[in-house]
């Protein structure tokens, strides 16, 4: 049975800092996840543990019930696009692609040529001669061409201009529709990716704060504005994320299923993903 990736009770400490504190998540097949969090929240640590790059202090990561730790068979269903460049600097792009195909036989060479020409990536250049933006493009080309069930992208649009970012998002969506691989994207550019991601995992100080579908989450995310006396009365049993007080105006940010429409003297607004993230993590 295909369970996907299950992260069970994972802990990770660096010295006195709890990088990850009892993480329990499930990554299913055929979905686009967004792993969101502030700097140092534990996003990259989680991705590194899932992909066997570092080891958790406690807990287990499994793929279809089998531990991924030091398991070549399980690991070949996972690929991570890192923030850093881990390729030999003097290797040419074409050689890098050649070797990636060797390591991942499902690598789609024709697609990589197609997407390279879209991004205008020169295959005769060496890795070290690429600019920051083109280094990201190289990683994007390789990552999107690798046809494995779970693809992790850690800050994929680093250094990309708006045109290339737009091209990346479109390529990602097309690739997802064609291959139905699971893409797990860790990013700070929440607003740009909010239309693409289906499921949100929000990490704050090493703990999972949110792990649900984006649509369900945003259905519940509300900003309620009005006078403090009126609002306080209604929201006392609600999951209040944040409040703001400026003079007579009181704003409360909630995750709620309650329908506040029809209540006088208060304004209800839906929250966007970025604003919700800001309130949850501030």
């Amino acid at each position: 049975m295909k369970e996907g990736i299950i992260v069970e009770s994972v802990f990770k400490k660096y010295g006195d800092i709890n990088a990850l504190n009892d993480i329990n998540i499930k990554l299913e097949y055929g979905a686009i996840y967004g792993i969101l969090g502030r700097n140092g929240a534990g996003k990259s640590t989680l991705i590194n543990i899932i992909s066997n790059r570092i080891f958790s202090d406690k807990g287990r990561v499994s793929l279809n019930g089998v531990s991924v730790r030091e398991n070549d068979l399980a690991l070949q269903d996972i690929y991570v696009m890192s923030e850093q460049k881990y390729y030999p600097p003097k290797m040419k792009v074409k050689d890098l692609i050649y070797w990636t195909k060797k390591f991942y036989p499902s690598f789609d060479l024709e697609y990589s040529k197609e997407i390279s020409s879209l991004f205008d990536l020169n295959w005769n250049k060496t890795v070290e001669s690429l600019s920051t933006g083109y280094s990201s493009i190289l990683k994007i080309v390789i990552t999107l061409s690798i046809n494995v069930p779970f693809v992790f992208l850690d800050e994929p649009v680093l250094g990309l201009d708006i045109n290339h970012r737009d091209l990346f998002y479109k390529s990602l969506m097309k690739r997802f529709k064609d291959c139905k691989n699971t893409f797990v994207i860790s990013t700070h550019l929440i607003e740009e990716l909010s239309d693409i991601i289906e499921k949100v995992i929000l990490i704050k100080q090493g703990k999972v704060l949110i792990d649900e579908s984006k649509d369900t989450l945003l259905e519940r995310a509300r900003k309620v504005t009005g006078s403090k006396e009126i609002i306080a009365n209604y929201i006392k049993n609600e999951d209040i994320i944040a409040t703001e007080n400026s003079g007579d105006i009181y704003k409360a940010y909630l995750l709620t299923n309650t329908d506040y429409s029809g209540i006088k003297d208060i304004t209800i607004e839906k929250l966007g993903l970025q604003e919700l993230f800001l309130k949850l993590t501030n």
Partner: peptide, 10 residues
């Protein structure tokens, strides 16, 4: 680095 990047176990 290259081998770990390509998910080869230690």
């Amino acid at each position: 680095m290259m081998l770990m990047q390509n998910s080869v176990s230690r």
